[in-house]
Design a protein around this nucleic acid. Sequence first.
RNA 1: GGGAGCAUAGCUCAGUUGGUUUAGAGCAUCUGCCUUACCAGCAGAGGGUCCGCGGUUCGAACCCGUGUGCUCCCACCA
Length: 899
Amino acid sequence: MELSKNYIPGATEEKWYKHWMSKKYFKSLPVSEGGKPDGRLAFTVVIPPPNVTGVLHMGHTLNETVQDILVRKARMSGFNACWVPGSDHASIATEAKVVDMLKREKNIDKKDLSREEFLKYAFEWKEKYGNIIYSQIAKLGCSVDWDRVSFTMDDHYYKAVIKVFVDLYRKGLIYRGARMINWDPAAKTALSDEEVEYKDVTGKLYYIKYAIDGTQKAKGQEDPFIVIATQRPETIMGDVAVCANPYDERYMHLKGEKVIVPLINKVVPVIFDEYVDKDFGTGILKITPAHDINDFNIGLKYNLPVIDTLNDDGTLSEAAQIFIGEDRFVARKKIVEELRRKGLLVKEEEYETRLGYSQRTNVVAEPKISTQWFVKMKDLAQPALEAVTSGKVTIHPNEKFNATYKYWLENVKDWCISRQLWWGQQIPAWYDEEGNVYVGETEEEARKEMSNQKLPEREMLKAESSKLTRDEDVLDTWFSSWLWPIEVFKGITEPDNADINYYYPTSVVVTGQDIIFFWVARMIMAGMEYKHEKPFSDVYFTGMVRDKLGRKMSKSLGNSPDLLLLIHEYGADAVRFGIMISSPAGNDLLFDESSLEQGKHFNNKLWNAMKLLKMWEEGSKFKTESSEPKVGGSGEFAIQWFQNRLNEVRGEVEVLMSQFRLSEALKTIYSLIWDDYCSWFLEWIKPEYGKAVEQDVYEKAVSLFDELLQILHPFMPFITEEIYHLLKERKDDLTVKQFDPLQPAEKEWLLLGNKLKNVISAIRDARNKNNLKPKETVSLFIETNDPSSYDLLKDILAKQINADSIEFNKDPEASCIMTVAESEKIYIKSDVTIDAGVQKEKLTRDLNYLKGFLISVEKKLSNDRFVQNARPEVIELERKKKQDAEEKIKVIEQTLSVL
RNA sequence: GGGAGCAUAGCUCAGUUGGUUUAGAGCAUCUGCCUUACCAGCAGAGGGUCCGCGGUUCGAACCCGUGUGCUCCCACCA
């Protein structure tokens, strides 16, 4: 067989994904359609549905990889693994993209389209980007069940959302009301508090003169005025009062006075409230209830009117009287200019402040009074809080996130769920001509609701015929996502179906920590409310993927790599490796392509190990008759040692995986394969040039490699499957091969293996330091108390350090290179002249280290309180350390004295 | 303003109830090798006041306090 020099991932990956699909390995049994879960336990994961706003980025790559590792591991461990793929309609985000695309590509304004026409374009968009996302998920090798692909606006899903809305409304947990909400003037919709991101910005504080009303001029003062500081001079037209602290001496004289709002000359009262901080600004505050939450609250308290001077798109409204139709920021400049011209601007100063930005459109959010739909959160929050504090749901890494989660739920505020958009589930509320609202899953239901409310018969007749108008708004996208673990199994629309009963609660949800409130907390709420059961047992938070300078990945910085290009360049396995290798749960990950490079190298290492085995296979067939296989005890030793090493590592990996410490598990496997298998084991069993490997040894080497491939498979599925099949003819596939039970590791073999490694390293080091070329053959003389320990080792040792003979406790009778390993003195005899200085230097160095070490150990042991207090096994250990160090020192000193 | 987390080699990070740790790995660096699987490799090496200070302890990278520097979350100071 012709094998390429290096591993080439592209075609191989495509081939295997197709094969796995054709074998339906990722298909979980649809219990509801009569399939039976054959007694296996379910391991369920629902994908955090990516938004159909665009393609997958590195954060998704990390998430999907983590999930695939967990799912594949579970599948190979005997679970009925079910990973549900899907995507999220992402109401506001997608609508913004579609609006933008229509304008740019087709020169169409949203306002010129009907709702239906717009939705047609939106669904086209969804189709396009949804498919790109799905193909990326497949390219990464994700073992999702494509027969279960779900979308948050699928028909049944849409119905589920509506059903939940109606249900919560009837329970009194959803209400409609006028509140101050955050308004997005670009998307022209309400936002939830969570959708507003606060950023530090340098703004300006303007100090503006307000004249004290002429009709009530304070006695004896010329042209009296007060100065008020504000960040938002463009809202002064909405002022309805000014407010000072009642204990502020400076403003006592204004009790009962009125002041004049500049430019529009409106007279407003002076009021007093302790809310005002005497020491900030000028100690006096303008009250603009329509445009600031604090002012709104004060307005409520003093029964002040609300004058909204802004339109929905952020331009000044008729109510502003001046600069009508100007954008709020343009108006600000013009008003400042006007004030300055009129001498009403006292000063302006730089001011560090925080502004809220819409998460989706990145414009400054506008506090606005508006009638919206809200979910009452307090009652829903309680069980969700309990689920985590009681440990039913475990967050990883919990130290970090439990507190955040708890704080949010304990202080949760009502959730604004209506959005003035078209892309999403339309709110199932209807209004009659008088503006009364009726909620039902359908118009008929709403109508019934209406007739129930209007008892008299005549009214009922009227109800049946009267005109009802449906609420135009749609629901917040998270109001659908929070049902995800339930409704992907139709747990809302067909409660108690076989699928949901089997697959719910799911096992683990893997997601970014940034959506802990948006999504995780709310899924737990929905789960507790609708299934009376947590939606998942574990939450695994990945960190944020940043570039190697620690910056967020973003399009504008151009530091967000294209996943498909990365897969093209490195292969999916290498991408998975690279992103996993340095990504402990919850820590941000500084993405650097050099780790993908490492993954690619690792692929190549595996590939070449396979090639070596194939070479041996062909060689041994060729030479079966003529050669006399010469692998006695040492081949056996190598196998025993590696088998036990493998058992040991499998145990470690099992523990790490169960703790979700995936990057450490991968590191451990990586080193087992690269160092222990390739660098040691394969070299130990490698035959002399031209000789064949013994059949038994070869076969054992292959089956050990099989085991390695299997442990690695969840992390790097493609190459492991490929090599598994290249090694041998197989009837099965690695993807569905079940793990054998763990075997305990026998310590004696491990110790012996370590001894061999240490001796080899010490001799190689000595050879290196003395400029002995690898080709120079040497003779070894070892001084040891236990020559028999070398029975199994000496053949390997001789081969590994290129020695033609090894003798024990015998005088080399010549000048030699000397070194020490495992407290044994080793003489290396060669024809090359020896530089005693080099040796002395190295030995002296070792000696100094050991002496220092010995002192620290002795200090402990001579301390009575240590001997009294420390655990016996610790003391024993220290004694052993002391003994070892003393022995080594003795040997080195002897050696040095000879030199 | 409130809360959380982090600080270990040039870089990215391990270090799981304080004791095989005068601290480990990968990458990077340096030295030597075209050794018949792999130069995307092999064999080695160098590199650290475990952020500063104080405390607890027989013993601290680890526990406590404090300072400094980063990061994140929450909050209505114009």
